[in-house]
Design a protein around this nucleic acid. Structure first.
Lengths: 347, 347
DNA sequence: CTGTTAGCGCCTTCAG
DNA sequence: CTGAAGGCGCTAACAG
């Protein structure tokens, strides 16, 4: 067992060629004779050579790694995203740096800095709440392509890939109105994100279009979590004129709303429809017995990765803003059964 | 805007010191005067210097990155794991390479190779099914610490951190027996993993201890997925003497079993208890209305990362096998209500 | 098609 | 406490 690292010169010597030839083989260059290539590869295998990317990166001033930073990996939505990114990134011969910020700006700053130091070729970011253009500016200045996903940052000079939240909200409300709902609440979320703003605007626009009440009282904010959903529906049900349906800020809130509904007795025959955003695996399976209609962006990870790779390969960093269409997915038909079930369970 | 990369010599010049001084400052060495340090830091900020880790890694022949490879990031269990690892790894000044293998050995080989090339300091692996000792041997030979999580690979000369599957199964079965269940099935999973073997053995041991039937017929294998659970419970319910409770190979199977139970009518008053393994967030929320008792390892990611860091820092690579205790977590009380609910829903 | 030469940016002796 | 020199392993010119 040789203690020392085996390098290109070792394998060059073993194969009886020069180290640049080895280098060419390593990079799969077509400029090298088939026989030579075979000899080199044999030597590589024999000596157990492992390519040293640190050296290559240093020399080339770039590395085949792309970074992905998400604000909450615990949320299945982002886990899915990361898997999608990983898939295309791996097949393109890159590796993925994954960092989770847990919505902490400080952490985000650190990981972005760290990624720069590692010389990432590009970055996919679902920014933490409160991220400002200044946080991304250095990347752009350094010529590192960035693709923003899920949350846009107005004014940032980078690409973005977000879902059409406005259209999604409009479609959801239309769906509810078609089914006869006249009092539709908007539950959950904080007003400080662009995502919230877009969904809320879609909600209002669709109500107006249907000539319905857009009064503030039917809009109840809360943490964008399951617990927040419970709080929000409780408040909503204390209103003089209760809503009969709710569009929720996201899937977590929708689950919480369902929890809240289960916990209270609805009047016999009373029905309640719930719609959430950001539907992913969990949402598809978690509340099978309640009606949920979901607005979910498909394959966002893959698309983001492709967009990023395109920019990396073209060398050009020309920001591109893509708004991804959403679809309404109906999991289970509405019906008075919902009201009945509530009673049964709470008894 | 200078086109050229700013390096240590630039900032050395700007600060009026030598480059080695700068290097010391960069590493937070205490050997440098406070005033000098301040000057250097000022220059760094002013020139927008970014540390080049490729160069440092090349020079030092190691990198502050640790790799984590999981067999299914889509499974919340592993997402949680990755988050846990990320947390401790980040605070230790490392960054995390995350790769998802989707149970594909070929992919796993690629990513492990890639990580070696990047000079990772250590690796946390939840191996894909079918991984052999040979797949990990080169890492050990290269002195790269490896911590196996979730799934052990007998004979591999690396550390491992797995839950006490045997004890978990025993506890689960005892719990069921105490509640009066006499016919307990073991549903789901494939017999080709050590995990399966341990859980199955615990199941058998506990039954024997209680003087109950351990006949093969109550053991029904299936894919370790939700769909597999549905298949398994359907088979189980076609038995002459039906089981009244099931211990499931994992949480996904448990969900599937619940699905299957919902889909069929139980006799009035008939009860059925379901227990799953690998409980994580999803499990805690997905089937709130059914009785589930869960066996879940806590903080495995953090512990694995700590173990790995310890090995990295000590330089010593002395494999250590840790069996993590599990706990039974009862989500909701058992009761005849389950049988009633089934009827209601399926009608 | 293959060999030679010259660094990439940093860290580490070893003197001062 | 700071400066001067050398080289980590690789690739990018350029010659042959």
């Amino acid at each position: 067992m040789g203690k020392e690292r085996v390098t290109v010169v070792d394998i060059a010597r073993a194969a009886g060629v020069s180290k640049s030839t080895v280098s060419l083989v390593l990079q799969g260059s077509p400029l090298v004779n088939e026989a030579t290539r075979a000899k080199v590869n044999a030597a590589i295998r024999e000596l157990g050579y492992v390519y040293n990317r640190s050296a290559a990166n240093l020399r080339q001033a770039r590395s085949k790694i792309i970074g992905i930073v998400v604000n909450d990996l615990t949320n299945s939505f982002f886990a899915e995203l990361a898997v999608g990114v990983d898939e295309v990134v791996q097949s393109a011969g890159f590796v993925q740096f994954l960092a989770n910020t847990s919505e902490k700006l400080e952490r985000q700053r650190e990981v972005i800095a760290s990624m720069r130091e590692h010389g990432v070729s590009g970055l996919i970011i679902s920014p933490a709440r409160g991220t400002e253009v200044g946080d991304l500016a250095p990347l752009g200045a350094a010529g590192i392509p960035v693709v923003l996903v899920v949350r846009d940052i107005p004014g940032a000079d980078v690409s973005s890939l977000i879902s059409d939240n406005h259209a999604g909200a409009v479609a959801a409300v239309r769906h509810l109105v078609e089914r006869g709902h006249r009092r539709v609440a908007f539950l959950g979320g904080f007003a400080d994100t662009a995502v919230f703003e877009a969904r809320m605007r879609g909600y209002r626009d669709a109500l107006q279009e249907a000539g319905l009440d857009t009064s503030e009282t039917l809009t109840i904010g809360s943490a964008p979590s399951r617990a927040g959903g419970v709080t929000a529906i409780e408040q909503a049900m204390m209103l003089k004129e209760r809503p009969t349906a709710a569009l929720c800020f996201n899937d977590a809130v929708a689950f919480g709303v369902c929890d809240g509904l289960r916990a209270r007795r609805l009047e016999p025959g009373e029905d309640f429809a719930v719609i959430g955003f950001d539907d992913v695996i969990e949402a598809k399976t978690a509340v099978p017995a309640l009606t949920t209609v979901s607005v979910d962006p498909q394959g966002m990870g893959e698309r983001a990765a492709e967009l990023l790779l395109k920019q990396i390969n073209s060398g050009r960093v020309e920001p591109e803003a893509i708004v991804s269409p959403v679809r309404l997915a109906i999991r289970q038909s509405c019906g008075a059964a919902v009201g009945r079930r509530m009673k049964e369970i709470s008894s």
